[in-house]
C-alpha cells in the first residue's frame, strides 16, 4: 500500500517524459545486450542531437504559441551557404570560423524573416513557415543545382566528428545549449514572458509585455539552433545534400518537443523535457534497428509514440 501511495504522489504531468524514458531504457537493455554498450549509447545521443538542438529552439516557439515548419529546409539552406563560404575562404581555420559565424547569422536572419511575417504581417505561423519551408528548400536546390554542396576543407569534419572527453562534440553542444536554454526559459524575464505570451497574449499585452517582440525573438532563437545543427551536420558529412539534408527535421523536432511535455497550445513547457523527448525517439529507432524491424515500419512506431505521449498528457490534463 505504501508503494502505491508513493506512486500516486509522483507529479506525473511533469515527470511523465522522464518516467517514459526510464521504462524505455530498462526495457531496451533487457531486450538487447548491445544496447547498454557505451558506444551504442553515445551513438544514439549523437544521432538525436541534430534534431534535438533544433527542438530546443522549437520549444520556445511552441511555448509562445507558434510553430515553425521551415526548420528542415532552413537546415539545408544554411548548411549549403556554410559550405559555400567555407570553400570560398579556402577551408582553413579562419574559413571555418567565418563560415560558422555567417551560418549563425544566416539562421537567425531566416528565423527573423519568419518572425517578422508572423508578428508584423499577422499571418498564422503555420502558414508563414509552410511558405518559407518551400522557399528555403527551393533556394537550396537552385543554388546547389539539386546536387551536393561538397566541402573542400579537411579540417571541417573535425568539428562534427570530433570528441571531447570521449563524448562526441554534437552531444556536448546539445547538452550545453539545453542547459543554457533551460536557464533562459526558467530563470530569465524573457523566458517568463514567452510562457505568458503563449498562455494568454491579451493578459501579457496588458501586463506591459512586448508580445510581438517576444514572439519574434522565439523565431530568431529557433533560427539560431537550426544554424548550429546545420554546421554540425555539414561537418559530419563534409557536405550538404540540397535534396536530402534536413528532410523531415521539422517533424522530429516538433515530436521531441511534444513528447517532452510541452503543450501544443503553448503556455508551458520544458527544455529538458524536449531533450528527453529527442532521446526517446532515438532509443525507439535504435531498438527497432537492433531488433531487425523493417525500416519502413519505423515511421509507424514513431507516430504511435507521438500520439501516445499526447494522449497520456491529455488524460492527465482533463481529469480534474
Amino acid at each position: 500500500m505504501a508503494f502505491r501511495d508513493f506512486l500516486k504522489k509522483i507529479p506525473y504531468d511533469k515527470m511523465g517524459p522522464y518516467i517514459a524514458l526510464l521504462i524505455l531504457f530498462v526495457a531496451s537493455s533487457l531486450a538487447s545486450p548491445y544496447f547498454l554498450q557505451l558506444r551504442n549509447v553515445l551513438n544514439i545521443l549523437r544521432q538525436v542531437s541534430y534534431t534535438g538542438i533544433i527542438g530546443l529552439g522549437m520549444t520556445f516557439v511552441i511555448i509562445s504559441g507558434g510553430i515553425d515548419l521551415s526548420v528542415g529546409s532552413m537546415t539545408a539552406f544554411v548548411g549549403g551557404i556554410v559550405i559555400l563560404t567555407l570553400n570560398q575562404f579556402g577551408g582553413g581555420v579562419d574559413a571555418i570560423w567565418i563560415a560558422i559565424i555567417l551560418g549563425v547569422l544566416m539562421g537567425m536572419g531566416c528565423g527573423a524573416i519568419n518572425g517578422l511575417v508572423v508578428t508584423k504581417g499577422k499571418v498564422a505561423p503555420f502558414i508563414v513557415t509552410l511558405g518559407t519551408m518551400a522557399i528555403f528548400r527551393s533556394l537550396t536546390l537552385y543554388i546547389g543545382n539539386a546536387g551536393e554542396f561538397r566541402s573542400a576543407s579537411r579540417l571541417f569534419p573535425e568539428v562534427g566528428m570530433g570528441f571531447f572527453l570521449e563524448i562526441p562534440i554534437p552531444v556536448w553542444v546539445f547538452f550545453i545549449l539545453a542547459t543554457v536554454f533551460s536557464v533562459v526559459l526558467n530563470h530569465t524575464r524573457f523566458g517568463r514572458h514567452v510562457c505568458a505570451v503563449g498562455s494568454n497574449s491579451r493578459v501579457a499585452a496588458y501586463s506591459a509585455i512586448k508580445v510581438n517582440w517576444v514572439r519574434f525573438l522565439s523565431y530568431v532563437i529557433v533560427g539560431f539552433t537550426v544554424a548550429v545543427s546545420a554546421v554540425l551536420l555539414g561537418s559530419r558529412l563534409n557536405a550538404i545534400s540540397s535534396t536530402n539534408a534536413g528532410l523531415n527535421y521539422e517533424l522530429d523536432a516538433i515530436a521531441a518537443v511534444i513528447i517532452g511535455g510541452t503543450a501544443m497550445t503553448g503556455g508551458t513547457g520544458s527544455i529538458w523535457g524536449t531533450v528527453v523527448g529527442a532521446i526517446i525517439l532515438g532509443i525507439v529507432n535504435n531498438m527497432l534497428n537492433m531488433l531487425g524491424v523493417s525500416p519502413y515500419l519505423q515511421g509507424t512506431v514513431k507516430g504511435l509514440v507521438i500520439i501516445g505521449a499526447v494522449l497520456v498528457q491529455r488524460k492527465r490534463g482533463s481529469s480534474i
Partner: peptide
C-alpha cells in the same frame, strides 16, 4: 486580461 490562470501566484504577481 488581468491574470494568467495557468501561472502560479508568484509568477502572476511579478508578471
Amino acid at each position: 486580461i488581468g491574470i494568467i490562470t495557468n501561472f502560479d501566484i508568484i509568477s502572476n504577481i511579478t508578471l
